[in-house]
Computed example of a mutant assay.
Amino acid sequence: MNEFFPCRAVEHSDGSYAAVTSDFHYFDAYFKNGCGGYDLQSLAKSLAKKHDIKGLKYDCEAGMFCVHLKDLGALKALCERLREISGEQSDYAPANPQKPKIKPRMLDELLLKGFVLRLDEDTQKRFLDGVPLELSPLFENYAAALAGDDEKAQFEALRRINSQAFSQNKRRDCVSALGHPAFLQILFDFLGRNPSDKPHLEALRALEAICMRHLPDLRAAKYFIAALAHKKADFRQVGICGLGTLYEYDLKLIEQLTKDKSAKVANAAARTLKFGFKKKDSSEHYIFPVWMFSGKLVRRCEREIFGR
C-alpha cells in the first residue's frame, strides 16, 4: 500500500521530497465539476492551514499537483488529510486481484485481433476466458448504478467513469477495468436500454474517453453512429469524436456532417477528418497513441488479419 496515497512520493537528490498526482478522479466526489492541479493546490493550502502543516512549496500545473517539503512526516500528514477526501487506496483496487491466465505479451495481441482491428468472436472468448474482469469497490458501485433505475445515480456513476477515463491512460502492466472489454459491455448494455438524454449523453462521453485512452473497441461504433442522427448537436458531436477514436470507419458518415447546421458539429467533423484516427487506404498505417499499442505489434497483426 502507498502511504502517500492519493499522491506518490518522490525523493530529490538534496534530501527533500515531493508529493505528486495527476489522478484527479480521486477527488470527483469533492469537486463536482472536476478538478486540476491548481484546484488541488487550493485544497491542500486550506488543509495545511487548518492542520498547521508548514513548509509546503507548490509547483503545480493544470495537469499535475505537486508539493515539495523537506519534512517527510509533514508530507505524509498532508497526504493523510487529502486521503480523508479522496478515500482509501483500497477503494480503487480489486479486493482479490487475480493474475491473468494469459501471458502478458499476449494480452495486447488478443485485444487487437478480437476487439480493436476487427471483431473476432473466437479471439474475444479467449481473452475473456483468460482475463477476468476485476472491479474495485467503486467500480462495483458504478456497475450497480448503471443496472438500476435511479437516473441521478446513473449520471453520477457515468460522470465519475468519464473523469477517470480522461485522467488515466491504458495500463501497460495489466488490463484495468477501463480497458477491459467486459466493462465496456456494461456501458453497451446501459445504452441498449435507451436511457434518457442526460445519462445517455454522459455514457457516450464516457465511452469516447475510454476508446480514446484505454481501448478503442470497434463494438462502440454502432452507438457513435446512432448518435450522428440525433436531433441534439451535443450527441452528433460526441458521435463524430467517438468514431474518430476507432481503427476504421466510414468517412462518408463524417463528411456529411461538415455542413451541419451546428458550427460545433461541423468543426468537429472537419477536425476528425483531418486528425482523427483512421485509415484512408491500405498504404497508410494506423498509429495508436504510444501508451496504447506498439506500432510493430499493430503492423504484424494487420498482416496476419488482412494480409497487408
Rank of each mutant, 00 (worst) to 15 (best):
K57W: 15
A266F: 06
A9D: 07
S86D: 03
S90R: 12
F188K: 00
A270H: 07
G55W: 08
F31V: 10
V20F: 02
G239S: 05
S282I: 11
L146M: 14
K152E: 04
A147S: 06
S46K: 04
F5E: 05
D108Q: 15
H12S: 14
V67Q: 03
I287E: 12
A268L: 04
R299A: 13
G73Q: 08
A269P: 00
Y142K: 01
K103A: 13
Y26Q: 02
F188L: 02
I102C: 11
S42T: 13
L246A: 10
P132V: 06
H180I: 10
R171C: 09
G63V: 10
A263R: 09
L273K: 03
P216Y: 04
D71Q: 09
A220M: 15
H285C: 02
A269M: 02
E248F: 11
A182D: 06
D120K: 10
F5S: 02
G295F: 07
K45C: 11
A203M: 02
K222D: 01
E80M: 13
C174F: 07
K279M: 15
I287L: 12
F115T: 04
D173C: 09
K70T: 15
G15R: 11
A93D: 13
Q168I: 08
D281E: 12
I305C: 03
S136D: 05
P132I: 07
Y223I: 13
A221H: 03
M212P: 00
R300Q: 07
A48K: 06
L128Q: 03
I240L: 09
S163V: 10
Y249L: 04
Y247W: 08
Q168C: 10
T272N: 08
K50C: 03
G73A: 08
L56C: 04
C79G: 02
H285K: 02
A74C: 15
R118H: 05
K50V: 08
A144K: 06
T258R: 05
Y38S: 06
R105V: 04
N267I: 01
Y58F: 12
E3M: 07
A165L: 01
P94G: 09
S46Y: 01
M64N: 12
L253C: 10
D59C: 06
F293I: 06
P97A: 00
D260C: 13
L112C: 11
Y247G: 00
K198G: 05
D260K: 10
M212W: 00
H200G: 00
Y92I: 12
L107T: 04
A48M: 13
E304T: 09
F5W: 11
R126V: 09
F24T: 10
E88S: 14
G244K: 00
Y17F: 15
L107H: 09
P104L: 13
L178A: 01
L47Q: 07
E61G: 14
F293M: 07
K99D: 11
D250A: 06
S283L: 15
A44L: 04
L138K: 03
I305L: 11
H51C: 14
F224D: 04
S262I: 04
E84S: 10
R160Q: 14
D234K: 05
N162L: 07
D28M: 06
E88W: 12
A227N: 03
E109Y: 12
